[in-house]
Amino acid sequence: MIDAKRRTLLKGSLGAGAVGVAVGAGLLTPRAVLANWPEAAFKAEDQSTALNDLLGSDTIEDSDKVKIKAPDIAENGAVVPVTVEGEVDGAKSISIFAAGNNTPLIASFEMSENSVPFVSTRIKMAKTADVVAVVQTPDGLLGAAKPVKVTIGGCGG
């Protein structure tokens, strides 16, 4: 039964919105998919929708406390190294967006009480665009952006 649901879900996720309809109709609870994977945020096609879904707000204060390390020019958009550091206390999460991608939310990292607000990973970028990092703090969302020039996009086939 669970397996049948999963098949339905996989098919559904290929057609945009089908899953949302299934969830809305109560056929699939989000918990059946994964504990807390924010599907709507990851499927959102603009950053502010994704932010609202993920963090409940899209109000970002630009801050130099949020440091993004990424190349100025990425020759291969399929592998763009990105490091984000937040010089803040009590950071709850760090989210990374590629503003030019179809679905800009790339990743969100939930911090624990022991975490240092630092993450480093490699992301795909469809085209030249800003990499946006958002650090969720007890006082609101702090953000920064770093333009990355992409010479070969990394999302198409």
Binding site: L105, I106, A107, E110, I123
Partner: peptide, 13 residues
């Protein structure tokens, strides 16, 4: 102790 949880899309390399 869980020290970090990462939620990813297919946008991670």
């Amino acid at each position: 102790d869980v020290v970090m949880t990462a939620l990813w899309s297919g946008g991670v390399s």
